[in-house]
Amino acid sequence: MDHLTRLENKSIYIIREAYYQFKDIAMLWSVGKDSTTLLWLCRKAFFGRIPFPIIHIDTGYKYPEMYQFRDEIAKTWKLNLLIGRNEEKLKQGMGPDQGSKLDCCTELKTNALKQLMKAHRLKAILLGIRRDEHGIRAKERYFSPRDALFQWDYENQPAELWDQYQSTVEEEEHFRIHPILHYTEFDVWDYVKRERLPIVPLYFSKEGKRFRSLGCVPCCAPIDSNARTIDEIVEEIRESKTSERSGRAQDKENIYTMQKLRALGYM
């Protein structure tokens, strides 16, 4: 069995196991390459027809290409698409310039998801995070409990030894399941290439720039690149030495640290 097939098999096993354990489950789709890969794996796991809803959290700040891609794919793949928006905060004008970037993420992403999960009584969500994305995610498990406050107590989580996944849930908790945790950025692109997956065109180079990681418009920047096709991207990633998220604004804790330091005159 080749490397990609082994990765795929493991993901499909986890997806089916998760669905078997939690009927109140959904998948979070950011429209980016990782969660689109996960979406594809979910289709494969259930032979083309995904038996649970797909959630897209719309912060109102995504690129037009992302909305267009979302709607096209939802239609062709016949997805039960749920869109989560924190309407109240959006009406109040919440954005990265109002308050901090951290507040903006908390309101428009975390709280929007919280509201949606509550409204649909969801007990578990599938996410397309990968272990190599950044430091703190290295501690993630395939099945990862969150408490009622959406907080992840990474020191207090069940061990996953010899692929025995811990998938029981306490009241008031929800589970996060990470079926592609074991993929690297390179694996994802290699898999996109093999499966000929559709991806948002922003990933391809235009005038010497392309996006390596997608998020909201104010917090994303393209990288220098001439990769115009999937093959060229795969080659670029193989050679790449800088970090994938270098075009993204700093992670939440770093943003907050920076704010605190700046308020006291550092930097």
Partner: peptide, 14 residues
């Protein structure tokens, strides 16, 4: 100090 740099890409490191 409170801030260092990642030597590879000059990004901030706390």
């Amino acid at each position: 100090g409170f801030v260092d740099l990642n030597p590879r890409d000059y990004s901030l490191y706390f």
